[in-house]
Design a protein around this nucleic acid. Structure first.
Lengths: 217, 217
DNA sequence: CATAGCCTGTTGTGATCACAAATGGATCAG
DNA sequence: CTGATCCATTTGTGATCACAACAGGCTATG
């Protein structure tokens, strides 16, 4: 298997892109623990590709801060210091407050309905103690809101921060014992309904900061 | 030449890293025009490496938004739309205002002296109509200030924005005819001396926004 | 029994090759 | 002279290989 020949069907995306996207989603959703090691040949084996696309995918993730590259070239998911976590939390705050503020004037009822539906999923995941499912639903909530801001570069930066925090988020929510309902999400929705920009900014800032504070603090 | 053998001396950095850093600096300083095309074999020829490290460097730059990857795989430096330019300017504003604000309490006299020295270089470059030199000195001014913020992740994001704007900045400053002294830089230094945070935030926002506004507007 | 040295298997790096797609220019018809 | 068509060249992609550095365990020695 795996001859140099390549069928004409490429599924509209190259091999390294498929590897990249899968790994990126895994990291962002916290499916990989902090400090976990990856090998190029291992990735290639899993995705049935050679080392070349595996390397490109890993390089790309390293460039985005999703993976850590040791001096000897070994790659692993990063173990963040408390200072770094606080800084990334501040970045989330900065970017996401701005994104929500830009989304506010464009937030119609259909968007709010959709956010409420996602919130039901978030609550389900919390009650099921499903850390990965919780992170995924939570990020979907935020992304859905921010997409309305019509600011792709800013959203991309916010997602890069999520990516860097992915493994740490898993560790955080894994040790959350109380089943906490998405209270801040409700505040966000209320502020959207009321067109209350200061309230929205405050709610987003609280939602983004709260969880990470208790991990880094 | 270029046998697979590799001497033990690696100069403390791998080949793809050398290529990456050189290209990154070139792009950030505006030495490459918007829309200019690059080829892997061409890069390899210039740096005397094979396609493999050239590809890794290019991939990394694409991941950072410094290069544009067409659907057919061709890479070129991006031609930004006005909307994108405005968004990146807003990002610069958001990030750099925060960085300067964090640097303010740590800004000692030695830092201010250094900023003033850099400012002399900026003025020289303006009078010499040296666009690349101007961009380099201007970015050095900002980086020197932001380094004091002790926020590496935030600074890295700001530099990513600079990188994305690099080719466009070149096009902008290339069409600036008036020899404009770094007025906003003087305002920044004055605010630093006075410990005036609102003034500093305003000065940084103006400095960051002014040039790009006249290009995108 | 502890520790230092070696040694083998593993890993990342970069070069080279084969292949498919796209590009760009030359040629020919209108 | 203008337009489309065809073909040779260029280009990106991915596989494979050789090599050096590294890691972990094993052995031998004090």
């Amino acid at each position: 298997m795996s001859l140099p020949s390549r069928s004409t069907s490429e599924g509209l995306s190259s091999a390294h892109d498929r590897v990249y996207r899968t790994l990126r989603t895994r990291i962002m959703h916290g499916e990989i623990a902090p400090g976990e090691a990856l090998t190029l040949r291992g990735i290639g084996r899993e995705f049935d590709v050679s080392m070349t696309p595996a390397r490109e995918a890993v390089r790309r993730l390293v460039a985005e801060g999703a993976l850590f590259l040791s001096s000897s070239g070994r790659v692993s998911t990063p173990e963040l210091s408390n200072e770094r976590i606080e800084e990334l939390a501040a970045l989330r705050s900065l970017l996401e407050v701005e994104l929500s503020s830009r989304a506010l004037p464009r937030a119609h009822m259909a968007l709010i309905d959709r956010l409420q539906a996602i919130n039901v999923t978030v609550a389900e995941m919390v009650s099921k103690r499903d850390a990965v499912g919780y992170i995924r639903a939570n990020l979907e909530f935020h992304r859905t809101l921010y997409l309305r801001a019509q600011a792709p570069a800013m959203l991309a930066m916010a997602e890069t921060v999520w990516l860097q925090l992915g493994p740490t988020m898993r560790a955080l929510y894994g040790r959350l014992r109380r089943t906490e309902p998405p209270h801040n999400h409700k505040l966000i929705i209320a502020a959207l309904k009321a067109g209350d920009e200061p309230g929205l900014r405050l709610a987003v800032r609280s939602d983004v900061t709260q969880g990470l504070r208790l991990l880094a603090g």
